[in-house]
């Protein structure tokens, strides 16, 4: 894959450590790398290698000790808490291992949630939600509650929720980790479509080699250091 365009994610000298009691445990130590627009990147590595921490930092839900992260021209490591929340609302789509849908809201309402943070009116929101539910093939299930959907269907609703605001990057933490093989395959195909058809940039943490196969680029993390495969 050629990297003709500007990188959408620029990471420079990123470090992060956790404090456990009096002990300081380094998780990431001075990582630097770029991700090009429209790329599908898989982050792999053993447990505790820091891949989830890296993903959280890129998604703007955790703060780095040192270094810079620039996404789509915004240096998110410099944003304050509420600016960061506003930035996440428009720029990042989240896909979680356990889907993290709100159980008391219907599929439609779950997908609509991120749009409540925009200036769209009710009718516009409905159009957007219906459009993305069509993309994930669940337009006929929009009034179902998460408990009435299968795991694969729930994950597709979660993907619809992630793309409804048309964000620049999608971050996925073990998106197939809780799914059977067939459902996992469906989800991976859907993510592949998002990259190829809709030009999304996807950054995915995974243990699943089949998931990693779909990615253009697999990056391995080991003890907080990065290596390219």
């Amino acid at each position: 894959m050629e990297q003709a365009t500007e990188p959408i994610v620029r990471i420079r000298n990123l470090s992060k450590s956790y404090r456990r009691g009096t002990q300081i445990i380094p998780v990431l130590s001075g990582i630097s790398f770029d991700i090009a627009r429209g790329e599908f990147v898989a982050l792999m590595g053993p447990s505790g290698s820091g891949k989830s921490t890296l993903l959280n930092l890129i998604a703007g839900i955790d703060s780095a000790d040192e270094g810079e992260i620039e996404i789509g021209g915004v240096e998110i490591t410099r944003l304050g808490e509420s600016d960061l929340a506003r930035w996440r609302a428009v720029s990042v789509g989240f896909i979680f291992q356990f889907y993290n849908l709100i159980p008391v809201l219907t599929a439609f309402e779950n997908v609509e949630l991120p749009l409540l943070l925009t200036h769209l009116n009710r009718r516009e929101r409905r159009e957007h939600v219906e459009a993305v539910l069509n993309v994930v093939g669940l337009a006929d299930r929009m009034d179902h509650y998460p408990s009435q959907l299968s795991g694969g269907q729930q994950q597709r609703v979660a993907i619809a929720r992630a793309i409804v605001t048309d964000p620049e990057i999608l971050v996925a933490d073990e998106p197939t980790g809780d799914l059977d093989r067939a459902s996992a395959e469906e989800i991976l195909q859907l993510m592949d479509r998002l990259v190829h058809e809709f030009g999304k940039t996807v950054i995915m943490v995974t243990h699943d080699p089949r998931a990693a196969e779909k990615a253009h680029l697999v990056r391995h993390l080991e003890k907080g250091e990065l290596s390219v495969t």
């Binding site: 998604a59 839900i61 929340a85 506003r86 930035w87 996440r88 609302a89 428009v90 989240f94 979680f96 356990f98 993290n100 709100i102 159980p103 949630l113 991120p114 943070l117 929720r161």
Partner: peptide
């Protein structure tokens, strides 16, 4: 988890 999710979504 729900609270974390809502906050991640930008609330």
């Amino acid at each position: 988890t729900e609270i974390g999710t809502l906050r991640a979504l930008g609330f």
